[in-house]
């Protein structure tokens, strides 16, 4: 029996959703046999190209769309059960909020929906506005907010009643670097407090920076899933070395480019690198920089995406 600490925040088993085309002609399989399960207190990223089915998956998790087949559980309960949504917070992609409300009215409204009493609402609304840096704009109408401010307000709404699980759809889209940093920090602070985060993104660098585990979705199917360091080898693949002056000829050393007296070479391993450094010193050249290349999520992603469909990862 799952104890309270071992209930997966998000659990999907064999989830499938097919959309009928216009006038019943044609079918699109948006999500096909998706199964995954997240751990309490971890940050999970669902990545994939546009149209992979990320948003559809999130909507099925929240009960906005009914799955044709399979099981969906949010904190152990089906999405049709409103108590399942009591302990979660959600921020959709490109959020649009009632532009005739002020920030305060907006958060107060959602506080009501979350079942917070008047006193709790007063304190929490103030706190969360502070936390996302919108305390000064509490009384401003939403139609005057910039996109970044809307995103931050949406986050404030999602974390308003301190949920156990935070679900975010493309939380960093459309934000400037400052905004993205802020969102990242909030997500990290969430994990630090022991909460789980589940977000979808097509920006791999963001996922790489903060996720504990990652799932790659393509064409409605899950291609890979697991811890970052198990998916991506952290080993150094090669070194890129910038050398000034003459480059000694050595087996394995490959010249990449040169401009003026500088040459960029690729060195396959540490031994070759040590010999190159020694040799360069001897011939009077100078080593300007050494950069170790590791596999990134993007590399893995491109590899997965390049494969023909029909491959499944477990």
């Amino acid at each position: 029996m799952d104890g309270p600490d071992t209930i997966p925040p998000v659990f999907l088993e064999g989830v499938t959703k097919t959309f009928r085309g216009h006038l019943g002609i044609g079918r699109t399989v948006a999500v096909d046999g998706l199964s995954l399960s997240t751990e309490p207190g971890e940050i999970f990223g669902l990545v994939g190209p546009n149209g992979a089915g990320k948003t559809t998956t999130l909507k099925m998790m929240l009960g906005l769309i009914r799955a044709d087949r399979g099981e969906v559980r949010l904190l152990g309960r089906p999405p049709s059960d409103p108590t399942a949504r009591e302990r979660i917070g959600f921020l959709p992609e490109n959020p649009y909020f009632y532009d005739y409300l002020t920030a305060q009215e907006f958060l107060d409204f959602y506080g009501r929906l979350k079942g917070m009493g008047a006193a709790a609402r007063r304190t929490r609304v103030g706190e969360q506005l502070e936390r996302v840096g919108l305390a000064r704009h509490g009384g401003t109408a939403l139609r005057k907010f910039s996109k970044g401010m809307i995103q931050r307000l949406g986050l404030a709404q999602a974390i308003l009643d301190d949920p156990e699980l935070l679900i975010l759809d493309e939380p960093m889209s459309g934000l400037d670097p400052v905004g993205r940093r802020e969102v990242r920090d909030i997500i990290l602070s969430f994990r630090a407090a022991g909460r789980a985060v589940f977000f979808s993104s097509h920006i791999l660098q963001d996922a790489e920076l903060i996720c504990d585990r990652v799932g790659i979705l393509r064409g409605g199917k899950l291609k890979s899933v697991g811890r970052l360091d198990s998916l991506i080898s952290r080993q150094v693949r090669w070194f890129e070395v910038a050398v000034q002056g003459a480059v000694p000829e050595m087996p394995g050393v490959e010249s990449l480019s040169s401009s003026g007296s500088e040459t960029l070479v690729r060195v396959p391993d540490v031994e070759t690198l040590t010999r190159l450094l020694a040799s360069a010193q001897q011939s009077g050249g100078k080593v300007l920089s050494v950069w170790p290349s590791r596999e990134t999520l993007e590399d893995l992603f491109m590899k997965e995406v390049a494969e023909p469909p029909g491959e499944d990862a477990r």
Binding site: L64, P82, F90, P92, P95, Y96, F97, L113, G154
Partner: peptide, 14 residues
């Protein structure tokens, strides 16, 4: 249409 319904229904409301 404006998708404000998403955030709304993501809350414990029926």
């Amino acid at each position: 249409d404006k998708r404000t319904i998403f955030t709304l229904l993501a809350n414990p409301v029926r």
